[in-house]
Nucleic acid binder design. Structure first.
Length: 653
RNA sequence: GCGGAGAUGGCGGAAUUGGCAGACGCGCUAGCUUGAGGUGCUAGUGGGGAGACCCGUGCAGGUUCAAGUCCUGUUCUCCGCACCA
């Protein structure tokens, strides 16, 4: 939606309508979903778990009934509010109803009701961030059950109907939103919590709410208690006296699964005038979509509603005439458990065979975009728990390890079909080939990072693959020579050392981080080394290196890799070969450069055998002419030696 | 507002465990090859300085022999949620 209109059809004004919808009661699983996040710790990215915690949004608090002042009433009307800070209730200076609250219709006159409606309409149109707080006094009062105080009842646009009870007590001295609202309308601000190590704030003079916990003051019998303790005791009092109770509220709402679309799984329900809503019996499942339909422009309902053969049916209970539900299911339903069905996709008796999913589940490694951090990944967790409770499976969580890919960004927005900023890989494939396209995508960034799509590097990958191909082609005869028993040349040893270091690097990237950009960089380094040694390499080494390069490239550039593998006399498919074995002794350097520092600054280098002992390193470092110059006879405070890494000489002055 | 991630050359990125910052690639510069252009190849390429050297990982501090990496504060960018009582 853009400016109140459809993003795709700019002449189509978007409006909100009330619809009867189907929901799944995911809120029953809110605590379960929250508690089991613990089980995912370590296997799932922390940020995904945090997002889920916030999305579920559990708050513990208290529900309290204020009593509507209404001399004519026989039965008192209770206005129930939810608060997480009942300890501040002695500072409540008004009660604020959401514009959608039921009492608004009853208490307000016509002008006020119109104003409430205007607020609701505005809220639907605007981003929550840029709606200014506003409201009006209803002219009515309610009584605070803790101190018997008479408080005015207001309507405020910032009070949400969909959270808590749709009504709040406003404690402006201790809640910033209430503070802003009450200051705007001249409603009293009364501090009732003092800082643990300070004095009660003075009003007037406050310029912001004091939201921290502290010590209750001006709170009758609860004065002097710490905030936490006051909350406990005051909630207990509400329960004893029947004007309230401890309550838990969640941000998460039930999952609306109704869609007014043709393409979707029909919700298998029948509406009967006599029997009400009746589920379609198992024997008649699945309800199938009619094939022969005309996708008309129908407002507010599924095109299915126009298909009388589909809609008109009989009631499974009484056999009388009935109407079929025409809403179809949200596709998130399917994505919540497709991975179970994939294990046993041809089963026409049951969703899946128990033994089969027992064998495969839970999923060891799931990979998806970060955009699924909440919806898909909460729904799937919920679905698994629901199937567990139905006895279909015996575990709590579907996915042990989650890897979230970064999104591909193009022109500042996520690349997606719906945004229409998709780059067709076929264009690159057509011009450079699929291998280049893959290499380029993998080389651009590590996979968890978001990637700003720039095509400037494609040429480089194309050039690299060309270089590999030409290298192998011009050495093909040597590489395919069967030449045994030759003494390896110095160049051979260097080449094999680089080769095995590369095998180690690429293998490690596969096994731990999936940072294929560095794998490809390592293979490039290997090729650079092979090219510079090319003239001095023996046929044996050439053959070994070329075959290994084909294998190392296979996951990234499969077509070229297979081509090279075949040219090099390899049998079968390159993918079917065992991964090249890393050999530590071949990878080991026979000399390394150790930087020499004086006071932490690089001054010289030492070439030594790896594993040279610290005493010897220290002695060599102190003999170094460059080092001696920088030490300049000053007293040496200490010498830090990290074998194979560096020597740092610390001097005074 | 809350929560999360990030900031390194002209660009994408590397530095995985506190130990030589800038791997690898793009781009750029010069040269060779070519009738010319492209391709290919060779060399160079963080900034300053004639040079010895100095400076340098958003900013300000701190810890350490040593900080892109750890700690404190801060700015900005992106993402998620958002008047959640």
């Amino acid at each position: 939606m853009v400016n109140g209109r459809c993003w795709r059809h700019e002449d189509q004004v978007v409006e909100q309508r009330e619809l009867e919808q189907w929901f799944l009661r995911i809120t029953d699983y809110a605590d379960d979903l929250l508690a089991d996040i613990r089980k995912l710790d370590g296997g799932w990215p922390e940020r995904v778990l945090t997002m889920q915690r916030n999305w579920i949004g559990r708050s513990e608090g208290t529900e309290v009934d204020f009593t509507l002042e209404d001399p004519a009433a026989v039965e008192p009307t209770r206005i129930r509010v939810f608060t997480t800070r009942v300890d501040t209730i002695h500072g409540a200076t008004c009660v604020i109803l959401s514009p959608g609250h039921g009492l608004v219709q009853r208490l307000c006159d016509e002008a006020q009701r119109a104003e409430a409606k205007r607020m609701m309409d505005e809220a639907k149109r605007k981003d929550p961030g840029d709606v200014e707080k506003e409201g009006f006094f209803t002219g009515h009062y309610a009584t605070n059950p803790y101190n018997g105080e008479r408080t005015p009842i207001w309507v405020g646009n910032f009070v949400l109907m969909g959270y808590g009870t749709g009504a709040i007590m406003a404690v402006p001295a201790h809640d910033q939103r209430d503070f802003e609202f009450c200051r705007k309308y001249g409603i009293a601000v009364r501090p009732v919590v003092k800082p643990v190590d300070g004095e009660l704030a003075l009003e007037p003079g406050m310029d912001a709410a004091f939201e921290d916990y502290g010590i209750a003051a001006v709170a009758g019998e609860f004065s002097g208690l710490r905030s936490e303790e006051a909350k406990r005791q005051m909630t207990a009092k509400a329960e004893q006296e029947g004007f309230g109770k401890g309550a838990v509220t969640y941000r998460i709402k039930d999952w609306g699964i109704s869609r007014q679309r043709y393409w979707g799984t029909p919700i298998p329900m029948v509406h009967c005038q006599h029997c009400g809503v009746v589920p379609v019996p198992d024997a008649e499942l699945p309800v199938q979509l009619p094939q022969d339909i005309h996708l008309a422009d129908v407002k507010g309902s599924s095109p299915l509603a126009q298909v009388s053969d589909f809609v008109n049916t009989t009631c499974p209970t009484c056999g009388g005439p009935a109407r079929r539900e025409t809403d179809t299911m949200d596709t998130f339903i399917d994505s919540s458990w497709y991975f179970y069905r994939y294990c046993d996709a041809r089963n026409d008796e049951a969703p899946f065979g128990k033994d089969i999913v027992n064998y495969w589940f839970p999923i060891d490694q799931y990979i998806g975009g970060i955009e699924h951090a909440i919806l898909h990944l909460i729904y799937s967790r919920f679905w698994t728990k629901m199937m567990r409770d139905l006895g279909l499976i015996a575990w709590d969580e579907p996915v042990t390890n989650l890897f979230t890919q970064g999104m591909v960004i193009k022109d500042g927005a996520k690349m997606s079909k719906s945004k229409g900023n998709v780059v067709d890989p076929d264009l690159i494939v057509g011009q450079y080939g699929a291998d280049t396209c893959r290499m380029f995508s993998l080389f651009a960034a590590p996979p968890e990072k978001e990637l700003d799509w720039q095509e400037s590097g494609v040429e480089g990958q194309y050039r690299f693959l060309g270089r590999v191909y030409r290298f192998v082609m011009r050495n093909l005869d040597s590489a395919n020579t069967v030449a045994e028993g030759l003494t390896p040349t110095a160049a051979d040893r260097k080449a094999l050392r680089k080769l095995h270091q590369t095998i180690r690097k690429v293998t490690d990237d596969f096994e731990t981080r999936w940072h294929f950009n560095t794998s490809i960089a390592a293979i490039m380094e290997l090729m650079n080394e092979l090219q510079s040694l090319e003239a001095d390499l023996s046929p044996v080494a050439l053959g070994e290196c070329c075959r290994a390069v084909a294998q190392l490239l296979a996951p990234f550039a499969p077509y070229l890799a297979q081509e090279l593998w075949t040219l090099l006399g390899g049998r079968d498919l390159v993918f079917k070969q065992a991964w090249p074995a890393f050999q530590e002794e071949l990878a080991r350097e026979d000399e390394i450069e150790v930087p020499l520092q004086v006071n932490g600054k690089l001054r010289s280098r030492l070439t030594v055998a790896p594993g040279t002992h610290r005493e010897q390193l220290e002695a060599l470092a102190l003999q170094d002419a460059k080092v001696a110059e920088w030490v300049g006879g000053k007293p040496i405070v200490k010498v830090v030696v990290v074998p194979d890494k560096l020597v740092n000489i610390v001097v005074r002055g």
